[in-house]
Each structure stands twice: as C-alpha cells, then as structure tokens.
C-alpha cells in the first residue's frame, strides 16, 4: 500500500485535503505549505503541477498556475523539491495536473520519478478512461501509484461504477457541474447528489472537491461523503497572507476547524 492507501484504510470519515499549486505564491513554497499542512492536521495534499491551459479550472487556480510558471516552476524542479524533503513529512502527497506536461516530460519517467520522490498517486483530469486502461494502468501498478478519477453530477451511474472498479484509493467527487472556485454554498442539488452516490454502495471512499470554502460546505461534504478537498479557497489565503503558516491558520478558521 502507498501512504495514501494506508491513510484511507485507517481514516474513513472527515478527511480533509488541500490543493495548492507548486511554485505559488513563490517558487519554493511547496515545503513551507507541506510543513504547515502537516502541523495543522490536514490528512493529505494535492500538489498542482502548473499548466498554461488548465481547462477544468476557474480563474483562481488558473492565475496561480500562470504565476507559478512565471516563477519558473517545472516538473523537474518540483521533483527536485520533493526529493529534498523526502522522508521529512508523513502527510501523503498526490500530484495533480494536465496530461500534456507529463507527456513532454516522458510518461514512464514521470511515474518513476513521482513514486521515487514520495507521491502516492496522480490526478490527470484530461486522461481518457479507455487510454488509462490501455496504456497507463500498468504504469500506475508498476510504481505503486493510485490514479484518482473524477465524477460529476452528470456522470452516469454506469460510468461511476466503472470508475469505482478502476479506483484503488478514492473517488474525487466534483460537487457541481462547474470549473473550480465557482460555487457558493451547497444546496439541495448537492445533497441529493451526495445521497445518490452514498446509495450506490461503492467500495471506494468519496471525497468532495470544488466549492469547499467555509464551515458549512465542509460539514456538508463530511456528512454526505468521506471527506473534502479545498483548493481555490486555500490559494486565495496563500495569496493574501505573508506565509503559508498564516494562510493555513486563516483557512482553518474559515473552515471552522480552529
């Protein structure tokens, strides 16, 4: 089992994960963010690999990517930063990004380096499922990495079941049909959607992302599913506060956890 799988075997409820863009707000931010998150008791982290054209993301993540690229963040540099802190922190790390930079880096080399530098899994939102099965699944297995798939309110039950069968960590539940950072509060539609997912009795834990930004949304995700991922709201705090530690404190306050 990789560290993420170990965590998910141990903790089934109230999981909290944060997303941040590597290289944002400053080039060497990753270690400071990882340290602050571990100290604050965050369960696992998604490390965003910045991309020039992040189709699934709203303006906040998009701007953080533009800034990170301008700061000089690249996949090789991210791996270097991860190598330096390897073993220093226990919090599981996932890499999240778009397929093109991975292809240019070299697919197998990417998986090898990701595993070597301590990643537990990878989220590639634009990797098609059939291509995953034909070309990528074996790489994930070979390097003991988990692939995280997304489902949305529009995803059919049949497809959700297939995603469940292909998953070996958790399912990333996109809270509504939207790009990141677009949602206000969760209404009846989200709660019904969470209930529909619960009723499917899937083997994989389900963690909600997109729109988690305050106490109410966090609680709803925790009540309806197994956990929550907070991205845009965290990036805003990182931008507004002098250090990741301060940003973390402000976010925890907003989420009602401090």
């Amino acid at each position: 089992m990789n560290p993420l799988q170990t965590l998910l075997a141990r903790k089934k409820k109230n999981l909290l994960s944060l997303f941040f863009t590597a290289g944002f707000p400053y080039l060497e931010s990753a270690e400071d963010i990882i340290a602050a998150a571990e100290e604050a008791g965050v369960d696992f982290l998604e490390v965003g690999m910045p991309y020039s054209d992040p189709l699934a993301d709203g303006p906040v993540i998009q701007q953080s990517s533009t800034k990170a690229i301008a700061n000089g963040m690249t996949i090789p540099l991210l791996f270097e930063q991860m190598a330096k802190i390897r073993g220093k922190y226990e919090i599981p790390l996932l890499l999240m990004g778009y397929l093109n930079p991975v292809l240019q880096y070299g697919t197998e080399k990417f998986f090898e380096k990701a595993a070597e530098n301590g990643a537990s899994g990878i989220i590639l939102p634009d990797l098609p499922m059939d291509e995953y099965q034909e070309e990528y699944e074996q790489l994930f297995q070979k390097y003991n990495l988990s692939m995280i798939f997304l489902v949305t309110p529009q995803t059919s039950d049949e497809r959700i079941k297939k995603i469940d069968s292909l998953s070996n960590a958790f399912i990333y539940v996109v809270s509504s049909a939207a790009t990141t950072g677009k949602q206000q509060d969760f209404g009846q539609a989200q709660q019904d959607y969470f209930k529909r997912l619960q009723a499917m009795n899937l083997k994989s834990p389900m963690i909600a992302g997109f729109g988690i930004h305050n106490h109410q949304t966090l609680q709803q995700a925790w009540e309806g599913l197994n956990g929550a991922i907070c991205g845009s709201a965290f990036l805003k705090k990182l931008e507004q506060n002098p250090t990741p530690k301060d940003a973390m404190a402000m976010l925890m306050k907003d989420l009602g956890l401090q």
Partner: peptide, 8 residues
C-alpha cells in the same frame, strides 16, 4: 482528452 466535467 477532456476532463470528466465535459464528458457527458
């Protein structure tokens, strides 16, 4: 090569 949100 599209995210799940565009799949349907």
């Amino acid at each position: 090569y599209i995210p799940e949100m565009l799949y349907p």
